[in-house]
């Protein structure tokens, strides 16, 4: 079980003047601004849960993960992983044995050597017994489809291969909890999909507690039951994935382009309030429909369009995480002002 109790992390940034003289002055000044990266975050994650930890850039996601995995020491509050503090020198080793960490932007693999070398080293560091290590490594190679590049030096791996290898490295000692900080960053759609599937399989196989940050809403939808949304260092929302969708409307934008002019109004009338709005461009040749995913699937809309128009092009975009955060933020503010109802706030 992971407990965060009113956790704070402040960074001090020296105030720096402009130009050379300003820089010189800052050498002797004790002035600094305090940046509250994480500002009073509390939540509890139970064993076996999978939590998506999301927020815009700079919301404090990575900072929280780094505090939970022993890299950073909180300025205030308390973090307990099975009753122990990961950032206290006497307790850290016990905690760190039970967690695995993958950073999308950093690797823990030995750059010039084949993967097996790093795995051997990790085996010693985590005291994994020999037979268990062999069994587990074989399972992971199978599961993550790594056979083809086990003997190549890490520097020659592609990003997708490297991420899989990093995942295996983090799973070798059978951690109770796996932290993934933007694991799909920079991967193309197909590779991303493979990786997410692999994580899903790992989770099913070993019942690992999963805490994941990402910018891709699709990752969260496929992997997580619970979502925690962070903004400016504070928890904005903590609840199930279903709740998020329900609260903020599972909307998506479908842009349809035709050779003929589309009568947006008639499409809207056909589906009723399942089509939230429609916006015409290009003299009506292309129309963007915003639809409510709980009432109408993209397929249904497209079927109707194909049946009635000569469709040339289709573009579908789902609600990005920034938009969700934005909506929640607006709602939060509206409630604070005492205005009535979600309707106003959502507009």
């Amino acid at each position: 079980m992971i407990e965060l109790k009113n956790v704070e992390k402040y960074f001090k940034k020296p105030v720096r003047g402009k130009g050379v003289w300003g820089m010189f002055k800052s050498l002797f000044s004790r002035k600094y601004t305090v940046v509250k990266a994480v500002d009073g975050v509390s939540f509890t994650v139970h064993d076996g849960e999978s939590v998506g930890y999301i927020g815009a850039n700079g919301a404090g996601k990575s900072t929280t993960i780094k505090m939970m995995s022993g890299i950073l020491t909180p300025t205030g509050g308390e973090i307990l992983i099975d009753g122990k503090h990961p950032y206290k020198s006497k307790e850290r080793n016990a905690v760190l044995k039970t967690i695995g960490v993958v950073f999308g932007q950093k690797t823990q693999l030995w750059y010039d050597l084949p993967l097996t070398e790093t795995y051997e080293l990790l085996r010693y560091i985590y005291d994994v017994p020999d037979d268990e290590y062999k069994k587990r490594l074989n399972e992971l190679i199978e599961l993550l489809d790594m056979k083809s590049f086990m003997d190549a030096p890490v520097r020659t791996l592609s990003l997708g291969q490297r991420m899989r290898a990093d995942l295996a490295a983090a799973m070798l000692h059978n951690p109770k909890t796996l932290f993934l900080d933007e694991p799909t960053i920079g991967l193309d759609v197909l590779v991303k999909r493979n990786l997410v599937d692999a994580i899903k399989k790992l989770k099913a196989e070993y019942n690992t507690t999963l805490i994941l940050t990402t910018h891709a809403m699709s990752d969260i939808e496929l992997l997580c039951e619970r979502v925690i949304i962070l903004d400016a260092g504070k928890v904005l929302f903590d609840g199930s994935l279903e709740e998020v969708k329900h609260m903020f409307g599972d909307t998506r934008d479908v842009k349809v382009t035709c050779k003929t002019v589309i009568d947006g109004e008639s499409v809207k009338n056909h589906f009723g309030d399942a089509v939230i709005k429609h916006a015409a461009e290009d003299g009506g040749h292309s129309v963007t429909f915003t639809i409510d995913g709980t009432k109408l699937t993209t397929g249904e809309l497209l079927n109707y369009m194909f049946a009635n128009y000569e469709v040339a092009d289709v573009k579908i975009s789902e609600t990005g995480i920034e938009q969700v955060v934005e909506k929640i933020y607006e709602k939060d503010r509206a409630q604070g002002d005492g205005t009535n109802g979600e309707g106003d706030a959502r507009e």
Binding site: K97, I99, V101, T107, Q108
Partner: peptide, 12 residues
């Protein structure tokens, strides 16, 4: 460059 991260997540 924040390169101490990975060493801090391991139990030695």
């Amino acid at each position: 460059h924040g390169e101490l991260d990975i060493y801090l997540t391991r139990p030695i």
